[in-house]
Design a protein around this nucleic acid. Structure first.
Length: 506
DNA sequence: CTCTCCCT
């Protein structure tokens, strides 16, 4: 039996988990052969992790790429770095071309990024007309995920946008950071696929050598580990603090994940998986989402909650808002607003799309991204298929929003915010947070809110919020909230302290 | 008063 782990250098969350599991299994399976394939040269790390496994070097078939550095660090126009980098950069280039007029040959400027509608993505593959040149302005989608034929020159600004996770506050953010040398080399390599090429790095040779990290920080060290911990527990791995990770995640991240799973009732006070936890682990989604789906059984609204879970899983890419049609797009979006909050708006969008017969035209007319809807439908189908296994009957609450909001509360009570004089504060950490301006509740400002996620961009924003009543918190999580902590007159609103230490839970 | 690196 042979297991191959390909693209190991990408160090995704899942390959890293696989490393740990396979190393463990290989110890008592002498018939098992493991082959780890990596495109980078840091083979020693992999070899060392797998008990000094032998290394084979397979030469690649690539053309040479000349690399040029600048004398000083060059930055793209600052506005390009601050917001909507790809679109802004395209506009900048096009404006320069207009000013040069007939002095230069025609230059096609084309953007590419994952959330760009597919028909616009397809343009980068069209053959360039004779005499013209093509510039593709890309995110790191072009670094790994797709290959564009005929690229001879690469310009590398030396930055990337990376997700980072703060386990103390449970907040994630996208931060522009210098990329690693491995990433820079991957980018340069894109110039040498069809012929000898050139790569222009907008930074100095010194910066490359001394300032950049050798490799990118693996995803496992900068993400929420809730579902990883639940998965490992369900596989019978109890001592996560001592699990053999190639690069262990921050201790606080593991502790927070354990703490949240305990609060959700997925783990008992010994850190063992409960019956509820076992059912939660059957669903390939984050623990809170999983708990929300399981709670929908009690409130007889699984039909609606499955849709909401699916819509929440396609991150913020449902509504299409092109720059030149902002007013139209915002009007279209307003037409979907229903009372109660964003989850119910998403439910409304999905249901109307179902009524349209899953129509592409309907999406186009309503400024909805078809690709995201199709993805939501796939996720929903997959989740619905698992309902049997976790013994949840698929039923509808027929338009009543209370059961739906209670089910959301049952999964997300950890994400409660309360309106006070200074604005919203999280109940857990008394952290000041803001309703995202895209939210349907942006102007309403209800007293009690549950947020789906907390993201830092220009401020600490709650994205996807739903209005709740404080009494529901007691109903769905009596073990977590005590009634007097929710009284309006009380000045301190703290959840009950959890007496479990990491040792007990780990 | 926003603003999306990538994938499951």
């Amino acid at each position: 039996c042979v297991i191959i782990i390909d693209e190991a250098h990408e160090r995704t969350l899942h390959t890293d988990i696989l490393f740990g599991l396979i190393k463990d299994i290989a110890r008592f399976r002498s018939d098992l052969k493991v082959l780890v394939a990596s495109a980078t040269l840091d083979t020693e790390r992999f070899s060392c992790f797998f008990d000094d496994a032998p290394v084979f070097r397979i030469p690649g078939r690539r053309f040479p790429v000349d690399i040029f550095y600048t004398k000083v660090r060059l930055y793209l126009n600052p506005c390009v770095l601050v917001c909507e980098e790809i679109e802004a950069c395209c506009e900048l280039l096009q404006e320069r071309c207009r000013r040069l007029g007939s002095k230069i040959a025609e230059l096609l400027v084309l953007p590419i990024y994952a959330n760009l509608p597919s028909d616009m993505q397809a343009k980068i593959f069209n053959p360039t007309p004779p005499g013209a040149r093509k510039v593709v302005v890309a995110t790191n989608i072009a670094e790994t995920s797709l290959t564009i034929d005929g690229i001879i020159y690469v310009i590398d600004p030396g930055f990337c946008k990376q997700k980072s996770y703060n386990a103390r506050t449970g907040m994630e953010s996208l931060i522009v950071t210098p990329c690693s040398r491995a990433s820079a080399n991957q980018r340069a390599g894109r110039a040498g696929r069809v012929a000898a090429g050139k790569c222009f790095r907008l930074y100095t040779a010194w910066a490359y050598k001394h300032e950049m990290e050798e490799t990118t920080v693996p995803e496992i060290q900068r993400t929420n580990l809730g579902n990883v911990v639940l998965l490992l527990k369900s596989l019978g791995i109890n001592d996560l603090i001592h699990f053999d990770f190639m690069d262990p995640p921050p201790h606080e991240t593991l502790v927070l994940a354990l703490e949240q799973l305990y609060a959700l009732g997925a783990l008992n006070h010994l850190g063992e998986l409960t019956k509820l936890g076992r059912r939660m682990a059957e669903l390939p989604v984050d623990p809170m989402l999983s708990k929300m789906i399981l709670a929908s059984e009690q409130y007889k609204c699984s039909e609606e909650v499955l849709t909401i879970a699916a819509m929440l899983s396609v991150n913020n890419s449902i509504f299409y808002r092109p720059k030149d049609k902002v007013v139209h797009a915002d009007n279209a979006r307003m037409n979907f607003v229903v009372p109660g909050g964003d989850h119910l708006v998403l439910l409304n969008v999905y249901n109307q799309w179902v009524e349209s017969g899953y129509s592409t035209q309907w999406c186009y007319e309503n400024f909805i991204q078809f690709r995201s809807m199709r993805r939501a439908r796939d996720v929903r189908d997959q989740l619905e298929g698992l309902m049997d296994r976790i013994e949840v009957e698929v039923v509808s609450c027929q338009g009543d929003s209370v059961p739906v909001r209670k089910a959301v509360t049952a999964g997300y009570f950890y994400h409660t915010a309360r309106l006070s004089k200074g604005g919203y504060k999280t109940v857990k950490h008394q952290q000041t947070v803001y309703v995202h301006p895209n939210s349907s509740l942006f102007e309403e400002q209800p007293r009690w809110l549950i947020y789906h996620e907390l993201v830092f961009t220009t401020k600490e924003f709650m994205r996807q919020v739903i209005e709740i009543e404080s009494g529901w918190l007691l109903e769905v999580a009596p073990h977590y909230y005590k009634s007097k902590e929710l009284e309006d007159s009380s000045s301190k609103k703290m959840p009950r302290k959890q007496g479990k230490t990491k040792e007990e839970l780990g």
